[in-house]
Amino acid sequence: MGLSLGLFIEGAVALLLALTLGYCIVLNRRLTLLHADRDALRLMVGDLVTATSLANQAIKELKTTAVEADLSLTSRLEEAERFGIQLANHINSGNALMQRIAKITAAGRRTPAPVAGLDLLPGAPAAAPAHGTNKVRAALEQLSTRVHNRGVAA
């Protein structure tokens, strides 16, 4: 019985050693895979760091470009405002001039026809005022026609 009990214990120990050896082999394979995954993870983290630094650089360049575009747009808007103000001033001046011309034209049309023998200008001969008045009327009519044509064209 002593021999069989010793043999049984030795067999149990051998079986436990075989199971331990098998478990160590499985554990070694898992550790090898884990180390391989760790190396792949290390490469992936390195790639991620590189991509992050490139993205940060691109963001800085985009910010710089946005600031330059904003400055350019601001200067163009200011220039457009100046041109708009100048254009408005020119339009107002043109309107005022057109109104003055229209008043002169209207006043020229309302003037009575000169009576023969009356001098419009002191010291001028009698024939001169009629001839000069005709020239003024002709010029005013041409001006009135131009103003009217411009008004129709606009």
Rank of each mutant, 00 (worst) to 15 (best):
V67A: 05
L97G: 03
A12G: 03
G123K: 06
R137E: 05
T32I: 05
T145H: 11
L71A: 15
A18P: 00
A138F: 02
L16K: 01
R30L: 03
H35I: 00
Q142F: 05
L73E: 07
A107H: 11
L31D: 00
K63M: 14
D39F: 09
M1T: 01
S4W: 05
F83A: 15
K135M: 13
L27V: 05
L87W: 04
A12H: 05
V152A: 06
A139D: 09
A126N: 10
G11K: 12
I9L: 12
R150L: 13
M98R: 14
N149G: 02
T105C: 14
N89T: 10
V152W: 01
A14T: 05
Q57F: 02
T133H: 00
R109P: 01
G117R: 02
A55T: 07
L41N: 09
T133S: 03
L120T: 09
I101G: 01
N89P: 01
A127Q: 14
A124L: 15
G6Y: 03
A107E: 13
V13S: 05
L97H: 08
R42Y: 01
A58T: 10
A66Q: 11
L17C: 04
A128P: 00
G46P: 00
Y23P: 00
Q86D: 08
A153T: 04
A139R: 09
E68D: 12
M98C: 09
